[in-house]
Simulated scan of single mutants.
Amino acid sequence: MSKVKVIPCSGIGKVYGLMARETVLQVTDVLSKDTAETVCLAHIVTGDDSAKEKIKGCSCITVDGCPALCSAKSVENAGGIIRAKYRAVDEMRNHRGKNAGTATALTEDGWQIVDEFAGKISAKVTELLEEESRNA
């Protein structure tokens, strides 16, 4: 069984993009390091054969910073099977009034939000793998 691919947007210039990237790194490097991995969105967007091959036909979770859904659209176009879509901007709605930080640095609140967000995505990774195992 292959690892679930968790792919963030690049989100340059806004705190939501930083949150998306840090959330995915928390999932793939800490919480679900044995069951999830990430693929560089820039390589997917530019049509890199190796990146496209890593996601083609695989279960993917996308984490976008904003409503443009760059990650989701790009992964879908490259043949990844999107099993869940998340947006950092939606996650912030659960934390109204909190200051998550800037495009280059998260605040203490921002890191707490990222940790919570990563927990949700890690739980989804586990759920998807259990579902795949039952259907195998």
Results as ranks from 00 to 15, higher is better:
105 A>V: 02
35 T>C: 07
21 R>L: 02
109 D>I: 02
2 S>I: 02
108 E>Y: 10
12 I>Y: 08
13 G>S: 09
15 V>W: 01
90 D>I: 10
100 A>C: 08
56 K>S: 13
22 E>R: 14
32 S>F: 03
15 V>L: 06
126 T>P: 09
5 K>M: 12
67 P>N: 09
25 L>E: 13
72 A>S: 14
56 K>M: 11
9 C>D: 08
125 V>W: 01
87 R>C: 14
79 G>N: 03
120 K>S: 11
114 V>F: 06
92 M>N: 01
89 V>D: 12
56 K>Q: 11
61 I>P: 07
4 V>P: 00
10 S>H: 08
29 D>W: 13
21 R>S: 06
117 F>Y: 10
114 V>T: 06
44 I>Q: 05
31 L>A: 08
69 L>H: 00
43 H>Y: 14
134 R>Y: 14
27 V>D: 00
66 C>T: 06
127 E>W: 03
93 R>V: 10
31 L>E: 08
11 G>Y: 04
86 Y>L: 01
124 K>S: 04
44 I>A: 07
27 V>G: 07
28 T>Q: 09
115 D>T: 11
120 K>N: 05
67 P>T: 12
41 L>E: 09
13 G>A: 13
98 K>S: 12
26 Q>L: 13
1 M>W: 05
26 Q>N: 15
123 A>R: 12
49 D>A: 15
31 L>F: 10
47 G>N: 10
116 E>L: 11
125 V>D: 07
64 D>Q: 04
40 C>E: 10
89 V>N: 09
35 T>A: 07
13 G>K: 09
44 I>G: 01
92 M>Q: 03
51 A>F: 00
42 A>L: 08
54 K>T: 05
37 E>D: 13
127 E>R: 03
35 T>R: 09
58 C>E: 15
16 Y>G: 06
100 A>R: 04
106 L>F: 09
105 A>K: 13
73 K>F: 13
27 V>T: 10
76 E>T: 08
19 M>Y: 10
29 D>A: 13
129 L>N: 07
45 V>Q: 02
92 M>T: 10
126 T>Y: 03
83 R>C: 09
14 K>V: 15
66 C>N: 01
127 E>Q: 12
136 A>I: 12
113 I>Q: 00
80 G>V: 01
107 T>P: 11
99 N>M: 10
62 T>P: 04
88 A>V: 03
73 K>W: 08
3 K>T: 12
47 G>W: 05
130 E>N: 14
73 K>L: 14
103 A>W: 00
136 A>D: 14
65 G>S: 05
55 I>W: 06
95 H>A: 04
94 N>R: 14
64 D>H: 05
